[in-house]
Amino acid sequence: MPSIPQPLDPDDDGGVAPAVAAALDDYQRGAAGPDRVLNALTGARLLVPVVALLTESEVGEHGLRQEKESEMALPKLVGKDGRQAVLAFTGTEALIRWRPDARPIQASTLQVCRAAVGEEAAAVVVDVAGPVTFVIEGDVLRALAAVESGTLEQLPGVTVARVEPVARRRWFRRRTN
């Protein structure tokens, strides 16, 4: 049974990171492209929703149906074409706008992308209920997931360069007469 991870930041107030808010606002106004939003999101905390799903109910002594067992689940968005997307939110306000009963789990954007690829989802939809919706999909989604998992070298067409410090060399000598 999966466990709920420890929070990234126990003092998180659920607000949107200022850099993310600015990038999304500029993106919505057409003043910035998706690359600016991705740069802001890459280092940001997102909130992944979990919701309770009724797995078993029973009829109580007064004839009313009541919950007997439930499980926490990660909801997915399913498009008209059948593709699935993992949902993530920049803050609690956007999460509540989508579904007030959902509970937030903190995760980095890279972790969310890795989870989406692991769930065979086609995309991550950020702030599905607004104020600005942003979608991470395709090669970008797979690349961000690979960064998180350390498997970037395995993506086709990707070359990873490592820069390592070298011993300092003198390129010239001083002449003494």
Rank of each mutant, 00 (worst) to 15 (best):
F134E: 05
F134V: 06
F134T: 06
F134W: 04
F134D: 03
V135R: 14
V135S: 09
I136H: 00
I136Q: 00
I136Y: 01
I136N: 02
I136F: 02
I136L: 06
E137F: 11
E137N: 12
G138I: 08
G138W: 05
G138R: 07
G138A: 08
G138Q: 08
G138K: 02
G138E: 09
G138P: 04
D139Y: 10
D139T: 15
D139M: 09
D139F: 12
V140W: 00
V140G: 00
V140D: 02
V140N: 01
L141E: 01
R142F: 04
R142W: 06
R142H: 11
A143H: 05
A143Q: 07
A143E: 07
L144G: 00
L144T: 02
L144F: 05
L144E: 02
A145S: 13
A145G: 12
A146Y: 03
A146H: 04
A146G: 11
A146I: 08
A146K: 02
A146L: 09
V147R: 05
V147N: 07
V147T: 14
V147K: 05
V147W: 08
E148K: 03
E148V: 09
E148F: 03
E148L: 05
S149G: 14
S149Y: 07
G150K: 04
G150Y: 01
G150L: 01
G150I: 05
G150F: 00
T151G: 10
T151E: 13
T151V: 13
L152Y: 06
E153F: 01
E153T: 09
E153P: 01
E153R: 08
E153L: 05
Q154H: 11
Q154R: 15
Q154K: 13
Q154W: 07
Q154I: 07
Q154S: 15
L155N: 09
L155C: 08
L155G: 08
P156N: 13
P156I: 08
P156G: 10
P156Q: 13
P156D: 15
P156C: 06
P156M: 04
P156W: 03
G157S: 11
G157T: 13
G157A: 11
G157F: 06
G157H: 12
G157K: 09
V158F: 02
V158T: 10
T159L: 02
T159P: 00
T159I: 08
T159S: 05
V160C: 03
V160N: 02
V160R: 09
V160I: 11
A161K: 15
A161E: 15
R162N: 07
R162I: 10
R162C: 04
R162W: 01
R162V: 14
V163H: 06
V163I: 15
V163M: 09
V163Q: 07
V163E: 03
E164P: 01
E164R: 08
E164M: 13
E164G: 13
E164S: 14
P165S: 14
P165V: 15
P165W: 09
P165N: 12
P165Y: 10
V166D: 00
V166W: 00
V166Q: 06
V166P: 00
V166H: 00
V166L: 04
A167M: 05
A167V: 12
A167F: 03
A167P: 07
R168L: 12
R169V: 14
R169K: 14
R169I: 14
R170K: 14
R170H: 13
R170L: 15
W171C: 10
W171I: 10
F172Y: 12
R173Y: 04
R173N: 07
R174A: 11
R174L: 14
R174Q: 09
R174G: 06
R174K: 10
R174M: 07
R174W: 08
R174H: 06
